[in-house]
């Protein structure tokens, strides 16, 4: 419970942060809410020589209406996402996912930037931003670049972020009126997802349109459930189709297993949650025991 010796650096601006990172190279680690980083350091699983705290960079803390998008600063906490009236109205998936992360303490400290940069294979927000086709702004002294959420995650705790880059902003589409759901299976409410399913869609007449689904907790990274999206878009959501789609949703996925859920059980659970998530956006009450 005692980290190895490190130096603490607290830049006051994004510019200062990026130049600090450039100077310190890969011996430095950015800290936002510290909810993942500090645990790793206390267990001595991570021992950065420098900790660069973004907490004093006020310019990274905002939720802004940008017309067809909402811009979110990397330092916005789960609690702030959950409470944001703008997001609730225009992009309800994000506050919903944020509200089931960890516990109150974690939600008060943990940030959206940290959650994505950490690229936890069971991260709740990772699934939400992926289902939303969010865009992520990465900034360094070399300049800034935008990447799609779909390109961001590379694997377990791995993303395209370079050591000298800061994730500065997340842009999610404004999708007021769309249906969305985030369903999470966890042993206890404060636990990481055994399976988390983020989904959003429009209902166009009777057909389902622009359905996007992302799944977390199941594999070495969050992923889009393409087979589900293809099967459902343009179709009317009804029980037989949902069950059939859900039952095939894990085909070809390399499902991980651990002490809380073997790969076999997790596969089953994922199918059940895919089905339940589709029902949720389709407002279809089904049998409490889906046949998948």
């Amino acid at each position: 419970m005692t980290p190895e010796r490190f130096e603490y650096v607290a830049p006051a601006s994004l510019d200062e942060a990026t130049s600090t990172l450039r100077d310190l190279g890969d011996e430095a680690k950015v800290m936002a809410g510290g909810q993942s980083l500090l645990s790793l350091m206390k267990l001595r699983l991570a021992s950065p020589r420098y900790v660069v705290d973004l907490g004093r960079v006020p310019a990274l803390n905002y939720i802004r209406d940008e017309g067809d998008a909402i811009a979110i600063g990397a330092l916005v906490t789960y609690a702030e996402l959950k409470a944001s009236a703008l997001l609730r109205e225009r992009c309800a998936l994000l506050p919903r996912a944020a509200s089931v992360v960890g516990d109150v303490q974690v939600r008060n400290r943990g940030t959206i930037g940290g959650a994505l940069a950490h690229a936890d294979p069971a991260g709740d927000l990772c699934a939400a931003v992926l289902a939303l086709d969010a865009r992520l702004k990465l900034v360094s002294t070399r300049g800034e670049r935008w990447v799609w959420a779909g390109e961001f995650f590379l694997g377990m705790y791995a993303s395209v972020l370079e050591p000298d880059e800061v994730l500065a902003e997340i842009r999610v589409p404004a999708i007021a009126g769309w249906r969305c759901a985030y369903l999470k299976a966890a042993r206890r409410p404060s636990d990481f997802a055994l399976v988390g399913v983020a989904v959003r869609c429009r209902i166009d007449g009777r057909a389902c349109a622009d359905l996007a689904m992302a799944i977390t907790g199941v594999s070495d990274r969050v992923f889009r459930a393409r087979s589900v999206e293809e099967a459902l878009n343009g179709r009317e959501l009804e029980t037989a189709l949902i069950e059939e789609t859900a039952s095939r949703s894990m085909d070809g996925v390399d499902v991980s297993g651990d002490i809380h859920a073997s790969s076999e059980y997790r596969t089953h659970l994922a199918r059940v949650y895919v089905s339940r998530a589709i029902r949720a956006v389709g407002a279809i009450s089904g049998p409490p025991t889906p046949s998948v």
């Binding site: 267990l43 516990d103 042993r187 206890r188 409410p189 404060s190 636990d191 990481f192 002490i259 809380h260």
Partner: peptide, 15 residues
């Protein structure tokens, strides 16, 4: 295998 409270699960208020 259950060396932290993330893996050794205690009942919590909500459960």
């Amino acid at each position: 295998l259950t060396g932290t409270f993330m893996d050794y699960l205690k009942p919590v208020a909500l459960t």
